[in-house]
Amino acid sequence: ERLNVCIAKTQYSFSDDAKALGRARGFKLSVKDLQIRTGAGFIVAVCGKIMLMPGLPKVPNALNMKITSEGVISGLA
């Protein structure tokens, strides 16, 4: 199967260095991890210091939550 590549890096620069603002030149892109997201159909190249959002399960936990008329909440993990 062929997978597309998604590059996760800072939004502030073409490089992976947030301090090299804008159109940085003469840099090396450091890939610290590769993550396969077969369900979405791509590979994520994680570059530099970046925090990724967690993926969601097929069945969201919110479907298991209940709130009674008294305000009692159940089903939280």
Rank of each mutant, 00 (worst) to 15 (best):
F14P: 06
D16H: 15
I67T: 11
V72Y: 03
A45L: 15
G39E: 08
D33M: 09
M53K: 06
R25Q: 06
G75N: 03
G48R: 01
Q35G: 02
V72A: 06
P54W: 01
S13E: 04
N64P: 07
A62G: 07
L52P: 02
F42R: 02
P57E: 03
N4H: 11
L63P: 07
A18F: 01
Q35P: 01
S74I: 09
E70C: 01
E70G: 07
L34F: 13
V59E: 07
G41I: 04
N64I: 12
Q11C: 08
A40I: 10
I50M: 02
M51I: 11
S30G: 05
F14I: 15
T38Q: 01
G39L: 11
L29R: 11
A40H: 07
L76D: 06
K28Q: 08
M65T: 13
I43Q: 02
T68H: 01
G41Q: 12
G26R: 14
V72D: 03
V44F: 04
R37E: 12
I43G: 01
E70N: 05
V44T: 15
F42T: 10
L3G: 11
M51F: 09
V72R: 00
G41R: 12
G48F: 04
L56G: 05
S74C: 04
I7C: 00
A24P: 00
C6W: 11
A62L: 15
K28L: 11
Q35V: 15
C6R: 13
Q11L: 12
T68R: 04
T38C: 02
N64C: 12
A8M: 00
S30V: 06
L76W: 01
K49P: 07
N4R: 13
V5D: 06
L21H: 04
V44P: 03
A40C: 06
R25M: 09
R2H: 05
K66V: 09
F27Y: 01
L21Y: 11
G71S: 12
S69N: 11
G26W: 09
G26H: 12
V44N: 05
I73W: 12
L21A: 10
K9L: 03
I50S: 03
V5C: 04
V5H: 00
K19W: 09
F42D: 08
S74P: 04
G75L: 00
A8C: 06
I67L: 00
R2M: 02
R37D: 14
S30K: 13
K19V: 15
F14L: 13
E70R: 05
S69L: 09
K28D: 08
M51C: 14
L56T: 05
G41E: 07
R23I: 10
I43M: 05
V31S: 03
V31C: 03
N4A: 13
P57T: 05
F27P: 00
T38I: 10
